[in-house]
Nucleic acid binder design. Structure first.
Lengths: 146, 146
DNA sequence: CTCCATAATGATAATGAATCTCATCTAATT
DNA sequence: AATTAGATGAGATTCATTATCATTATGGAG
């Protein structure tokens, strides 16, 4: 895998933007931590590490990372956006436990193929999709039994 | 199809709730109009018909309709919830044009089956899902050519 | 290395959807 | 018609996110 710092710096520079400590910090945080992080969590983690950053800058930086396809924005239905680094893992969709909030990822090529035919049948040119399965994860099913 | 007014009144009564003009109006509006309505649009439509109603009541009524499975809540990714009447159409998912906002519906049993196996493989008990395909509709593809 | 234009930041105000509060109103039973 | 608990409306509140704008700092020029 490429060094992420170099990747971002290159892109940032190429666009005539400036490579700042805040932008680097957000990008590192998104790479090093679990996926499905929300902006608030990133904000507090960085503040906790004595990195000067504001919420606005967290959002602004994520916006850039999304724009340059380094980060994917997720809407898991709980009112806040989640973000995941796109390096190091291919496309996947999500299973979400409605009880404990656990998030699992899945990949299914058959579904992807069907999406293409559905789009074709309806004369759409597909750009992306949201596919989320909600239910009870294994642990929470067992909890229900008690 | 059953008379909707009777349906709602019956459910409302059965639950010890009260059948009000506001609740009837929201329900009628959701039935008679296109799907994918948002709360604000319902609010203004009803106000435009000289029906006394507040935003809060629109939201409260929709909450009841969703609870009793008469209405489905949709999140189409534009920051506000949409609602569609569940009478008169079976389960379906959505194709959304990213340019003009057009919304089409699709049904695909193969995908539904695959969702079940994906859930099973991951030891989830499925309760619902979100499946949305984003892209350019036929009209907007043609616009691009010009 | 210093200067400097201007991009980026931070504090805070603003926005917008959705919910909550509470005084007032009204459905519906007696 | 009286009663009472549920329902409503106006407005306040919340929460995530975006906009504003004065201040700061990056990075190329000299």
């Amino acid at each position: 895998m490429n060094s992420a710092r170099i990747d971002l710096r290159a892109i940032i520079k190429q666009e005539g933007l400036r490579y700042t400590t805040q932008r680097e910090a957000v990008w590192r945080e998104l790479q090093s931590s679990d996926n499905h992080r929300d902006a608030e969590s990133i904000y507090f983690t960085l503040r906790g590490r004595s990195i000067n950053i504001s919420r606005a800058t967290v959002y602004r930086t994520i916006e850039i990372l999304v724009k340059y396809n380094l980060v994917r924005k997720l809407d898991l239905g709980d009112g806040r956006s989640r973000f995941e680094c796109k390096l190091g893992s291919g496309h996947h969709d999500h299973l979400i436990c409605t009880k404990c909030g656990r998030i699992d990822e899945f990949v299914n090529d058959d579904v992807e193929e069907l999406q293409k035919s559905i789009a074709a049948e309806n004369n759409y040119v597909l750009s992306n999709h949201i596919h989320q399965l909600f239910g009870l994860c294994e642990n929470c099913q067992n909890e229900e039994d008690k």
